[in-house]
Design a protein around this nucleic acid. Structure first.
Length: 895
RNA sequence: AGGCACGUAGCUCAGUGGAAGAGCACUACCUUGACACGGUAGGGGUCGGCGGUUCAAUCCCGCCCGUGCCUACCA
């Protein structure tokens, strides 16, 4: 038998096995395979990215399910890839360009700059994929995709053109979110609102042209008054009714504009009841402007600088203009005060600059028709959310969905396939560069300069990666995908939109189940960020402790995330997992050290018909039954996406049952090399460990492979644990009677140990113990296994008897349920101590007994409680009564 | 402002209409031939508060207090 290294060292073993698996092509899912498909598409990380804890968590969960299903004989396919990540990537490369060449992208020009991004991508774009290998991800590398590769780009264009032809994509001039720093339009989702920023509500007055007075208005953005074209009041507000229809004069531009009545915009209870209206720079005011056909005056340019419409303030940055406008209003005597005011300000998700609402011509997707089927699909259960609570959030967003601004004024991305005619101004949308205007046939065409929102390509990911729009075999086999695993932070950005695109283009949901995991934070619950310096780099963790430990730590922490709760991650979690690895390693060493003369084929033959044919002893019957329980628990937990429960079940099986009990029970019986039953113990050890390795493999692929390889196997065994069958419960080995017998034995042993500890009996001393039992059943079992009890309880003699003879003096007693465990001592025990201990135990038993008795005496209970509960409680009452009797007798003896 | 959650052992979190759980931390003892990255035993919780439903509530319902998250155009 091969010798296992004395200590567990993940570093070499992990590299070795990943290479091996790759070489044997175990990760590849064949579209033509006759097995039931199980497919996952990876949430494509940004090409610029490197692995962070969030990725590590998501990919670990995906790998657990992929490996589990692969072993469960599914045609498992997990597709990897990366996202071109428009703004993010452009910003990264721009920064790099600035740092290395001291140039801006404009210095380079569009073409050269895009070339540079591609070069950059060649160099660094594979980094995060390489890191997935370190994690042990069993992704199908043959199918790696990138959202900017030609085939994928073709899918994006196809999608745009079809939606345009269906009237679901349109171009319009409206108020959009504009980032003055990135100089692009943003969708509503790309604007972050910081909660409760302390701001100022500034009040000033507009004068009426007829000299009849003034109207006081309030604003958080005073500079927008440069674009005011009305003041609105509520039609029913008595304070303002007389002013409706009158004209106001703008203090800086001398423009005049009316006081209008608008019940939608104005809440008469707020402020002065008069609202300044800036149709070009506020969403509500925009609508108001449309309703009242007001003048639309844009006062800011694309860089956030006041334009010529701002009169004397032209050329000033928006924030400088704010100060200047206030100063001037004060100077003119129109300032009317200011109050602190809490309100949310929109920031660009990428660069954090304050976003401005601006009027601009952009491309939009009409969302309502797309959302409807996506809502129905979830209602009908075609796609399920895990945890289920997320479906509510999804529904809420979907039912209140607004049109999606998809054009971006960037260079890096899919260019919008629309051409404008220089002759007739008509728009031609086409799959390939058109030769002539679709309307006037002019050849004077100019393609739209803009690119598409990154998410406009990502929302096609589940099917564009499988060959769409071509009728690929892959689509047929792997679409709809089985499972999507991602963070809840991109539920709307990505998940909801994939639902819409998938249903629209494929007529089927893109995935059956969406597993939304939480955000990984540091151990204090703070979001990990480089700025704060509290990040934990998964690659560092892997180097130090191994991928198995990192994966297991994450799996252990992955409970059903309720909303607003995060995974508080700390290195100590990894250290705990590593201790577990070490424990497994050493358990395997023990097993391997004791396999001399063991023949796996013989064991297989002798147990082929189930456990009875081998006439196992209690410990073997017990552990083989517990193997089945663990198998059942793990499979059930995974079926229900309870990753943590599954991981903990394997952990407890290995540590508490295999190591703490079975190995201890095996030791003595392995010592006798001549024993004819030795092979049974060896076989049970190998079976328990081998099954445990397979159960654990999806969580810890490397160590399980390494140890599994070392175990003796029958001739027909697979080459790798990866391609063995995942354990399924074998009911023939489930043995309730042995489990309860063993539980009794364990309880008695534990009680003996407790007594020894309490009395400070040195471990070298072999005690004598008497077990007073109340029924023959227990007597038979304990008498049958008194050798076992003696060994584990360090006793030289264990006497089991039915009766209540007083134990010899000196002795101490303890209760194992209703069994009186009498530990005989070498010298007289401290009676006071013993008395106090027994009194304490008695009072506990007594209160339990009284409580239970009262409950059982209640006729209502007997009448309404289910029979099983009744029976259980009656049995328990019997045990409590018996225990009480023994305790009373013991106390009496002490007196 | 609305919506969604959460409050269980010192910490991080499971859990269930029918005797309160795990990991870590803590205490005592133990170098026993797999493992001190270990073992054995132990302490520790009126399951946020108040009411209600029920034979039975940590679990279901209502209110209150506290916390987190998401969505939102209140000037």
């Amino acid at each position: 038998m091969s010798e296992l290294a004395k200590t567990y060292d993940p570093s070499t073993l992990e590299k070795k096995w990943y290479e091996e698996w790759l070489q044997r092509r175990y990760f590849h899912g064949e579209a033509a395979a006759p097995k039931a498909p199980f497919s996952i598409v990876i949430p494509p990380p940004n090409v610029t990215g490197s692995l962070h804890m969030g990725h590590a968590l998501g990919r670990t969960i995906e790998d657990i399910f992929t490996r589990w299903k692969r072993m469960a004989a599914f045609n498992a396919m997990w597709l990897p890839g990366t996202d071109h990540a428009g703004i993010a990537t452009q910003l990264v490369v721009e920064r790099d360009l600035k740092a290395t060449d001291k140039k801006s992208r404009h210095d380079l020009g569009r073409e050269k700059f895009i070339e540079r991004i591609w070069t950059w991508r060649e160099k660094y774009g594979g980094r995060i994929l390489e890191q997935l290998k370190l994690l042990g991800c069993s992704v199908d590398w043959d199918r790696t995709r990138f959202t900017m590769e030609p085939a994928y780009s073709k899918a994006v264009v196809e999608c745009f053109v079809r939606l345009f032809e269906e009237g679901l994509i349109y171009r319009d001039t409206r108020l959009i979110n504009w980032c003055v720093s990135c100089r692009t339009a943003l969708s509503d989702l790309e604007v972050d609102h910081d909660e409760g920023a302390q701001g100022e509500l500034y009040e000033f007055a507009y004068q009426m042209t007829d000299g009849s007075g003034e109207v006081v208005v309030a604003t958080t953005r005073p500079e927008t008054m440069l674009g005011d074209t009305a003041v609105a009041v509520h039609p029913d507000d008595p304070r303002h009714q007389a002013k409706i229809g009158k004209l106001l004069v703008h203090p800086f531009t001398a423009r005049t504009f009316p006081v209008i009545a608008d019940a939608i915009l104005v809440d008469p209870k707020f402020g002065t009841g008069a609202v300044k209206v800036t149709p070009s720079h506020d969403p509500n005011d925009f609508d108001t402007g449309k309703r009242h056909k007001l003048e639309f005056i844009s006062i800011l340019d694309q860089t956030g600088v006041v334009n010529e419409a701002g009169g004397p303030f032209a050329g000033m940055d928006r924030f400088a203009a704010r100060k200047a406008v206030k100063a001037k209003l004060k100077e003119l005597g129109f300032e009317r005060g200011s109050k602190p005011h809490v309100h949310a300000v929109g920031h660009c998700q990428r660069c954090a600059a304050v976003v401005e609402p601006l009027i601009s011509t952009q491309w939009f997707v009409k969302m309502e028709p797309l959302a409807k089927p996506a809502i129905e699909a979830v209602e009908q259960g075609k796609t399920k959310f895990v945890p289920e609570t997320w479906s509510k959030t999804y529904m809420h967003w979907m039912t209140n969905i607004r049109d999606w601004c998809i054009s971006r004024q960037l260079w890096w991305g899919h260019r919008i396939p629309a051409w404008y005619c220089g002759n007739c101004q008509a728009v031609t949308v086409a799959r390939t560069t058109p030769g002539a205007c679709s309307k006037c046939a002019s050849a004077d065409l100019r393609q739209d300069e803009d690119v598409l929102d990154t998410w406009f390509s990502s929302w096609l990911w589940p099917f564009a990666t499988l060959g769409w729009p071509e009728p690929a075999r892959e689509l047929k086999t792997f679409y709809p995908t089985t499972l999507l695993v991602t963070g809840y932070d991109i539920l709307f950005f990505w998940v909801a939109r994939m639902m819409m695109a998938g249903l629209h283009f494929m007529k089927k949901v893109p995935f059956r189940t969406v597993y939304l995991h939480t955000i990984v934070t540091d151990d204090k619950g703070e979001k990990m960020s480089k700025v704060k310096g509290n990040t934990i780099d998964p690659v560092d963790v892997i180097e130090k402790h191994g991928a198995d430990s990192l994966r297991f730590a994450l799996a252990w922490l992955t409970t059903m995330a309720s909303q607003g709760k995060n995974i508080k991650f700390s290195l100590s979690n990894v250290e705990d997992a590593r201790r577990f690895c070490n424990k497994i390693w050493n358990a395997a060493r023990f097993v391997l050290m004791n396999l001399d003369g063991y023949d796996p084929n013989r064991f297989a033959d002798r147990t082929a018909e189930g456990p009875d044919s081998a006439s196992f002893d209690l410990p073997e019957r017990w552990i083989l039954s517990r193997v089945q329980r663990a198998t059942e628990t793990v499979n059930n937990a995974l079926d229900e996406y309870r990753v943590s429960d599954a991981a903990q079940a394997v952990y407890h099986f290995i540590w508490d049952e295999v190591c703490d009990w079975y190995i201890e029970l095996a030791k003595g019986r392995l010592a006798d090399k001549e024993s004819p039953d030795r092979w049974k113990v060896q076989g049970a050890l190998v079976t328990a460990l081998e099954t445990a390795m397979r159960l654990l493999h999806p969580f810890m692929p490397f160590i399980t492979e390494e140890l599994w390889q070392q175990l003796p196997k029958t001739a027909s065994a697979s080459q790798s644990i990866m391609i063995t069958l995942y354990p399924i419960p074998d009911l023939r080995f489930i043995d309730d009677a042995s489990e309860s017998s063993m539980a009794l034995v364990q309880k008695v042993i534990t009680t003996i140990r407790t007594l020894r500890t309490e009395r400070k009996v040195p471990s070298s001393v072999r005690s004598r113990v008497i077990l007073n039992v109340s029924d023959d059943y227990k007597k038979t079992i304990l008498a049958g296994y008194q050798a076992l009890v003696a060994e584990q309880g360090r006793c030289r003699e264990v006497l089991v008897r039915r009766g209540g003879e007083a134990p010899p003096d000196p002795a101490v007693i303890g209760m194992a349920g209703d069994i009186e465990v009498v530990l005989l001592l070498e010298e007289v025990a401290d009676t006071a101590d013993e008395n106090a201990k027994l009194e304490k135990e008695r009072s506990k038993v007594l209160s339990d007994r009284d409580h239970l008795k009262k409950k059982l005496d209640n006729p209502q209970f007997a009448e309404r409680a289910p029979a099983a509960v009744l029976e259980k409680d009656r049995a328990r009452l019997g045990e409590l009564e018996a225990a009480l009797g023994r305790l009373d007798a013991a106390l009496k003896r002490l007196k």
